[in-house]
């Protein structure tokens, strides 16, 4: 369990596997009060040529944020509740160090504005105990906001707050889901269900429809 988490605290869970790529989150993110007009969430196809798998990513709000540590302007601040804020507007010098360092590929450099912006978990909403915009609207609930108990009641799987990038372990306030416990090693590779290797049965052995 994350050192930042309280029992009754609502947690943000991202389960990328069930994303349907509808971009409701992308559209809703721009309606968030702290960055109206700018969408901070990432969502793109993993490899549209091969699959409809999409890749949603919010700021994971690391316990020890790499972005803040590499910021030369000391512009990225973490609140007491563990939320890592967008770069402070007066300080950010738009060097993009955070963009390039973040292990999750989260911060966005707004070039014209000379400023890094990123997901702040809809601080205007979560600070009032309202669900963030993206998790509110997400039709597949790939983005989810609630207590750990509510999650356990509704969904299978284990909540994970640790990621492994080679030797580097990163603990996060935002949680992800896996079938079994244990840190998510990004090098763990990919598995697929049998039919997804060949959705239309093109390579299955002779069957009547395959002739055409």
């Amino acid at each position: 369990m994350s050192p930042l988490a309280r029992r009754d605290e609502k947690v943000f869970v991202i389960d990328q596997s069930r994303c349907i790529g509808c971009k409701a989150c992308v559209q809703a993110c721009a309606e968030c009060g702290t960055h109206r007009g700018h969408s901070m969430i990432h969502l793109e196809f993993a490899d549209r040529g091969a699959s409809t798998q999409t890749v949603p990513m919010v700021c994971m709000h690391c316990a020890d944020p790499t972005c803040a540590e590499v910021c030369p302007a000391d512009a990225i601040k973490q609140n007491e509740d563990g939320i890592v804020q967008s770069a402070l507007k007066p300080r950010c010098i738009a060097c993009a160090s955070c963009v390039l360092a973040c292990p999750f590929g989260v911060p966005k450099l707004m070039v014209e504005m000379n400023q890094m912006m990123k997901c702040d978990m809809c601080y205007d909403r979560t600070s009032l105990d309202l669900a963030p915009m993206c998790a509110s609207v997400c039709p597949s609930q790939a983005l989810w906001f609630g207590t750990r108990e509510e999650f356990a009641d509704a969904r299978p799987g284990v909540l994970i707050d640790e990621f492994l990038f080679g030797r580097q372990s990163v603990r996060t306030k935002v949680l992800t889901v896996a079938r079994e416990d244990g840190p998510l090693d990004v090098a763990s590779g990919r598995t697929a269900r049998a039919w997804q290797d060949d959705p239309f049965g093109l390579e299955e052995s002779a069957w009547p429809g395959n002739a055409r």
Binding site: D15, Q16, S17, R18, A46, Q53, V55, P56, M57, F104, G157, F163, T176, V177, A178, R179, E180, L184, D185, V186, A187, S188, G189, R190, T191
Partner: peptide, 9 residues
Amino acid sequence: ITQAQAGRV
């Protein structure tokens, strides 16, 4: 990261 997570799910 997404593909690794999908694999774990």
